[in-house]
Amino acid sequence: MPFDANTPSSPPGRGPGFALHMHLRNAKNWIPACAGMTKRLGAALLLLTIFTANAEVETVHPPIPLTEQQEALYKGLLPELRCLVCQNESLAESQASLAADLRYEVRGLVAKGQDEAQIKKYLTDRYGDFVLYKPPFEQRTALLWAGPGLLVLLGLIMLVAYTRRTRGVPTAPPKNDEAALKKILDDAP
């Protein structure tokens, strides 16, 4: 049966090679790297991590069963929530351990019967509006939401005004006939 794995990440110290990676990733944790490409940190951090062979304890989350409706809400919500530690990824995409924890939280809230607004409030209360990929319409985002429509409107008005202005204006003979073009080409100094 499907179960919400959501990359419930490994307990520490599993497999030698993979453990090394975990240190590296966690070492950079305050500028955490997800699937992104922060490469430069490399050499310097390698030194640091060699003697801190400690690993972040990654929580293994038990499955939370959801009804079909709740599952749909959960799946719809995740892409709208931003993973804070990542470069620019949603909770649906991120492989960071905090993202896994937050997915578990969200899933738990969905299972408790909370709706979209309540869950979003739960997250913005803690992390601020930054977590919402779709900012709510309010005074400071008015231009963001109205802007595109206004732009189209403005463009259409300008377009109509332009055609009005040129109405009945005799058309300059088009210069695209080959003779005229050839003449221009031949005029080359």
Binding site: E80, N88, D129, F130, L132, Y133, P135, L143
Partner: peptide, 22 residues
């Protein structure tokens, strides 16, 4: 607009928001 809006709000000290795929 969507790409730069968060930067503009931040510049005007109106807080940090995200503008993403949705």
């Amino acid at each position: 607009l969507g790409t730069l809006y968060p930067l503009a709000l931040d510049a005007m000290h109106l807080g940090k928001i995200s503008v993403g795929p949705p």
